[in-house]
Design a protein around this nucleic acid. Sequence first.
DNA 1: TATAATAAATGTAAAAAATACATTTATTAT
DNA 2: ATAATAAATGTATTTTTTACATTTATTATA
Lengths: 227, 227
Amino acid sequence: MDIYNKDKFYVAVDCIIFGFDDGEMKLLVFNRKIDPFKGSLSLIGSFVRIGESVSEASKRVLKEFTGLEDVYTKELKSYSSVDRDPGYRCLSVAHYALIRIDDTINMLIEEKEAEWYKIENIPALILDHNEMVMDALKRIQQIARYEPIGFELLPNKFTIPQLQKLYEAIYRRKLDPRNFRKKILFLDIIIKLNEKDKTSSKKGAFLYQFNHAKYKEFQQLRFNFEI
Amino acid sequence: MDIYNKDKFYVAVDCIIFGFDDGEMKLLVFNRKIDPFKGSLSLIGSFVRIGESVSEASKRVLKEFTGLEDVYTKELKSYSSVDRDPGYRCLSVAHYALIRIDDTINMLIEEKEAEWYKIENIPALILDHNEMVMDALKRIQQIARYEPIGFELLPNKFTIPQLQKLYEAIYRRKLDPRNFRKKILFLDIIIKLNEKDKTSSKKGAFLYQFNHAKYKEFQQLRFNFEI
DNA sequence: TATAATAAATGTAAAAAATACATTTATTAT
DNA sequence: ATAATAAATGTATTTTTTACATTTATTATA
């Protein structure tokens, strides 16, 4: 067998963690406490261990940095340029994750010296991590057309205006509130509650919950979730 | 640093090569001439060398098995279950490729002991290769809505009925010939030639070519290519 | 040379979905 | 009682999708 067939790689995972807060999409960035690149900003990652799969490694990393176990996570793609990491011959499998930002999580990530950055305003990150973020943003725009990923980023109870702002942030364009509401309600994918959120208006906006059962039905058909 | 951070992997690429011939989507399957799994059927793959990226490795493999240099190839996903390969701790990055089947290629793949199988009728392959194929088929159905991948699979000159048959094979459903033609011509993505193909009818069908320039325009906008 | 056979090519009406657009409503604070 | 604020609502128009049947160009053969 060819000698080239015997080369071995370090394998890493990097997690591109998105959240939505204050009407803005945000990225979780880590301030590295250890070498290499101590003091630089990076995505959250880890080497993959021999005894785990890539997806297990990504779950482990997410648990460690956010405390969350059931996070929406998808593989983005692998990054393997020969000179991508000056220290190791290392392939990284990037994953993007969508989480609900809340105080519990924010306390945890503060301990870890991680921080949220608006996606409009992402700082320089180590290695090819900025490229990963850009690729992940593109991917999310794509899949938002087919999967109701918006719901992964909002709290369990949310208002229609909140949901609209989120989609405006993902698509980076304004949406008409009448048409947005009409489409979402027509999809029948959210359930109206008998409660209002009054944090952003005097009138208050009705709270809704995501209808998981209905979404499962959609997945069978090839439904166009595009907003 | 954690000792677990020092584990190393073999990294492989596997290529899920699709073609279209005789009105059917086909998969290129390789009859392994060497151990491990000598005599079994598998996808076409290779270990990734230290001096190349994953995508370079996939191009190398495709060149070797098909003689083609400019093949439409996309990364599908990584496969890394701990026990996926009994011989090695090996991560494989699967790629799917779309090629135009012709006599030149068929001669080459015959030499390599590879063979086309109808996708309705794929044999048992080694390791997790059947899973890769199923995942790739799903992915192709998805992206066919947005990218004119159909053109990668047809010869340079093709007829509208041929193109329709291809989309019927990808989507696995019948399409209305009037509506299909209307949509395709409206997209203005194919150029009519002054030649006919008379292999499948007495009247003959006009040949067309893909309009690459027009497609580039589409990519800028977020165009729905869905048929 | 007329006719039969074959798949290619064509058009239109109806239904569904997307878009554009302005006013009223519920509530709180003054 | 009033002003201020964001939430909620409806309709007409345009665009897109769908459903559906006949004519046309060509070859083979009677």
